[in-house]
Amino acid sequence: MQKRAAEQGTIVIELENVAYSYGGGELLSSVSLKLAPGSFHFLTGPSGAGKTTFLKLCYGALVPTAGQARLFGQDVREMTRDDIALVRRRIGVVHQDCQFLDHLSMAENVALPLTVSGHDPNSEQQNLTELLNWCGLTPRANALPPELSGGERQRAALARAVIMSPDVILADEPTGNVDWEMSQRLLQLLVELNRMGKTVMIATHDLGLIRAAKQHVQARVLRISNRRLQLAGADL
């Protein structure tokens, strides 16, 4: 995976003077960022500042209204819908409101990226078992998503985001609905993934989480304020 990112140049996600507007004033403007492989970023800022919008620009769900966004060297504007779909297999996303297919078991939901990309989930059964075990979800493998607790849903969403062994993991408020202990476990999972070489970006407004992470990993903190993206100081 690392090698694949390296072949495309060192930058996995690159935003250049990007602006985004939902119509009626820009939400983000003049945003520039280069995510290098293996980096660990936090994205913070007040609610409604545009954290989710920023992440959506990073995985091609939104096309910038100005400026350029490049995913693995490809300009988002020139990508077809299927190009975007293929890029999503290399970018694992943990949604804020982790959505699942409610009629499939949790294990099948976690394996969904394999299913839709044409892999045979049976041949990856061992990986799936290990992953569920690693996330502490094994006992709940056959539960349907509505039966899961908030923490279990967050961990299942994370497991689904990483099952394809993506180069990048984007997580939007992954600890939003869980208690402190659970948020520490989730953070631990993300830190371990980063040590395996994955690029990680976590959007959160939980400063405690950021402080806790800084003890384990060299993380940079980006802050969205006044429609701009700034590198926050060390004094956080």
């Binding site: 299927d82 779909a85 949604h95 297919l101 969904l112 839709v116």
Partner: peptide
């Protein structure tokens, strides 16, 4: 959800 996990059209 399918689109999010990389399913093609």
């Amino acid at each position: 959800v399918l689109r999010l996990v990389g399913a093609e059209d």
